[in-house]
């Protein structure tokens, strides 16, 4: 059972090769001397240099980062409240509509979300720019946050909150002192998810951004429509590197914590 059959080895190898080879090629050719992206002409980091000179890209990156920080923070607050309300509030007027609105954006094609938000912003006469992208990103990523947080809240032992009330906390104190610290990892991963979604989004940003605010994906998209370019390869490599480091660090930290917790639990039981 624990020995891999040749079939499993082959399918895992091929599967992960399929997942990773395209990205590896991309990274490799970002260090290519030649402008011709498919011909290897020697190692060079000149495309990274050019990227750092490219003001349009840097501006777009700055806008993207701003949008991502604001929208993911706002989405985390709203999404956590929404999750808490869904799990804890029992029945209230319009609950079905509310849960529908929380889940719908997860499956909604981005073109539709983008189009509808654009028409709203035009309808109420809101100028398109950073603000409109933040509003749009907050709306769809709060739903992801709420899914992540509510899946944690479902398994949350409600007697912990009751114990806090029993010991003299008000509802708000119980949430702040007990619930929030315990569900914090889920809230943080919700924030990270919202942040990544915002960094990534092309379609909704294209609809809701104006000439004053171009995000990095919009910039990349208009560049790659014309074909492959080594500069984009360099940019992609940087982004892949950041994500990889982040994900590996996060999983190592959480793994270490789990191992330590398990060890301490075992030690406590043995000592007893």
């Amino acid at each position: 059972m624990n020995r891999l059959s040749w079939f499993n080895v082959v399918s895992l190898t091929l599967g992960f090769a399929f997942l990773y080879i395209p990205m590896l090629i991309l990274i490799l050719y970002s260090f290519n001397e030649s402008k011709l992206v498919t011909v290897w002409a020697g190692f060079s980091t000149k495309w990274y240099g050019e990227l750092l000179q490219n003001e349009a890209f840097l501006n777009a990156a700055w806008v993207t980062l701003k949008v991502a920080v604001f929208s993911s923070t706002l989405a985390t607050v709203l999404g956590t409240i929404a999750a808490y309300v869904m799990i804890r509030s029992g029945k209230f007027f319009g609950r079905t509509l509310f849960s529908g609105m929380i889940y719908a954006p997860l499956v909604m094609p981005e073109v539709i979300t983008g189009l509808s938000l654009l028409l709203l912003f035009i309808g109420i006469g809101l100028d398109r720019g950073v603000l409109t992208i933040v509003l749009a990103h907050t709306t769809f990523s709060m739903c992801y946050v709420s899914v992540v947080v509510s899946s944690r809240l479902v398994t949350f032992d409600q007697s912990l909150e009751e114990a806090a009330l029993d010991l003299g906390c008000s509802q708000a104190e119980a949430f702040r002192l007990v619930t929030l610290p315990i569900i914090a990892p889920a809230v943080i991963s919700g924030w990270l998810l919202a942040f990544t979604l915002s960094l990534d989004d092309l379609v909704i940003a294209s609809f809701t951004s104006g000439p004053s605010a171009t995000t990095l994906p919009i910039k990349i998209f208009s560049a790659v429509r014309l074909g492959v370019s080594p500069e984009i390869n360099a940019l992609s490599t940087i982004m892949i590197a950041i994500v990889t480091v982040g994900v590996i660090t996060a999983s190592l930290v959480s793994k270490q914590q789990a191992v330590r917790q398990k060890k301490e639990e075992q030690a406590a039981e043995r000592a007893a």
Binding site: L19, M23, Y29, T196, V224, T244, I248
Partner: peptide, 26 residues
């Protein structure tokens, strides 16, 4: 983690990666 990693990586970049692979001189 290896399965989740691409999920956190930019969608646009992952699509773009195939442009260089699939083109006529790719």
């Amino acid at each position: 983690m290896l399965v989740i990693l691409p999920f956190w990586t930019s969608f646009l970049i992952r699509v773009y990666a195939w442009m260089g692979i699939l083109s006529n001189e790719g």
